[in-house]
């Protein structure tokens, strides 16, 4: 992976902001139109929208179209936790021809609307802050390239109970080598101690 180290010194960055309603998950607490409007006033933001479901295909298509139409260079998606949909939106970036690392997310669901259910005004204010923070970070994001590495086509399975046995056989039957490690003298685990098992009432070995 060779990161592009040269700092982009372009005077103006073209940033797009998308505030997701997540149905009513975000929108019932956070005033999404207001957040998007506030964001449109931020430096470098050339387009700011609020959409029903950013992660849905129409939602992604809208962002992709905007990227092409408005020449967007950085994208801020204000929706759920990046731990959930960062991969989704990175793929969207890639398919729109942008480096996936030029995406920044603001967590308006898990860390805003859901934890301030009874304070819509404060939650909206917080959402505006989170988007502002995300935009200021997005401005400095740099494209990064993933590095391709060789991989060992073998799997270590730790534990030889019913789960370890099944997973080993599935892997091996698909042509993958398996190293199965069991701490006892025999595989079988707890399952081997049980004779008739529900729901079939037959032997499990």
């Amino acid at each position: 992976m060779k990161p592009v180290t040269s700092i982009d010194t372009k005077p103006q960055m073209r940033i797009g902001v998308y505030v997701c309603h997540c149905g009513s998950n975000i929108a019932q607490t956070v005033n999404c139109p207001k957040v998007s409007e506030t964001a449109s006033g931020l430096e470098d933001v050339v387009i700011s929208k609020h959409i029903a479901y950013a992660c849905s295909e129409p939602g992604q298509q809208e962002i992709r179209d905007d990227i092409h139409e408005h020449g967007l260079e950085r994208i801020v998606v204000a929706s759920c936790s990046p731990r959930l949909h960062e991969p989704t939106f990175r793929q969207m970036m890639q398919s729109a021809g942008l480096n996936p690392y030029l995406l920044e997310m603001a967590n308006l669901r898990e860390q805003c609307s859901w934890v301030h259910l009874n304070e819509p005004d404060a939650a909206t204010q917080k959402a505006e802050d989170l988007v502002n923070m995300a935009v200021s970070r997005a401005r400095l994001l740099q494209p990064l390239e993933e590095e391709k590495l060789p991989l060992t086509k073998r799997t270590l399975v730790i534990g030889g109970g019913i789960a370890g046995i099944q997973t080993s056989l599935d892997l091996a039957d698909n042509g993958y080598e398996v190293v199965l490690v069991e701490k006892n003298a025999s595989i079988g685990g707890t399952m081997a101690q049980i004779d008739k098992t529900f729901p079939t009432m037959d032997c499990s070995i």
């Binding site: 270590l156 730790i158 030889g160 046995i165 080993s168 056989l169 892997l171 091996a172 042509g175 993958y176 080598e177 398996v178 190293v179 199965l180 490690v181 069991e182 701490k183 006892n184 003298a185 025999s186 595989i187 079988g188 081997a192 070995i205």
Partner: peptide, 19 residues
């Protein structure tokens, strides 16, 4: 269970632990 013992692609280590 016996399939695991016989499978040419499965290397079985019993009495073993990951260190």
């Amino acid at each position: 269970m016996t399939d695991v013992g016989r499978h040419p692609l499965i290397k079985l280590y019993t009495l073993s632990e990951i260190v």
